[in-house]
Write a protein that binds this DNA or RNA. Sequence first.
DNA 1: ATGTCGAATAGGATTCGA
Length: 259
Amino acid sequence: MKIATFNINGVRARIIALLDWLKEAKPDVVLLQEIKTVDDGFPRLEVEELGYAIETHGQKGFNGVAILSRLPIEDITRGLPGYDTDEQARWIEATVIGETAVRVCGLYLPNGNPAPGPKYDYKLAWMERLRARASALLAEETCAVLAGDYNVIPSTKDCWDPRIWEKDALFLPPTRAAYQRILNLGFTDALRATDAHPGIYTFWDYQAGAWPKNHGIRIDHLLLTPAAADLLTACGVDSHVRGREKPSDHVPVWIDLAA
DNA sequence: ATGTCGAATAGGATTCGA
């Protein structure tokens, strides 16, 4: 089962890029972030034509997440369980049925800038809710994948120049500590389980020639419960799509599970 | 010159969020 995460940065503006990538990468399941539309605005027909069912948790103007699946999908939950007061559409989860069932959770973690400030407080509060949900999935011994735009640069190996990010909400010590607390529960970072090299990025800013200079950061992650990590066979980053016409500023990251 | 972009509002340029 091939599962991918992709911050699409506006699914309506990016439909060609999405379809082209779906046709070539042929993922079974895709977790999309920043669809930037209400549910009714999602360009359903074009995606359904490729064999995908679509489950959305949309929002007007910004945020918004979705799951595409060409496997049977059931038991969809919109919004982070235990965080009913969250007014932003940043979480969707569902069970997809391959050879075995996998609980897939798509997340768009708050950016948090500027820090300090209310947006950073919201980010840290959201991460604490995420930790609680992650802990529950572990306790149930679920085969689960928590994937999306975490807006967290985990280490200095995950950015071109750490000095630029020192005061940024994506890299501040409390951010990295909160992320590490989630990993420490017993999750596997799929990319780091398969490739320890520095300089693997998933996002390049539109500004200042970040892509041609390869000034990127790694902020899109797939975290696996032990039951899922046992099935991991491959992980990759489709960085080439960043060089195409009208690209998202993020690129897809994917895993293959023996599931 | 932060070498930018999408969406909303409003009916074009500005604002927000990233």
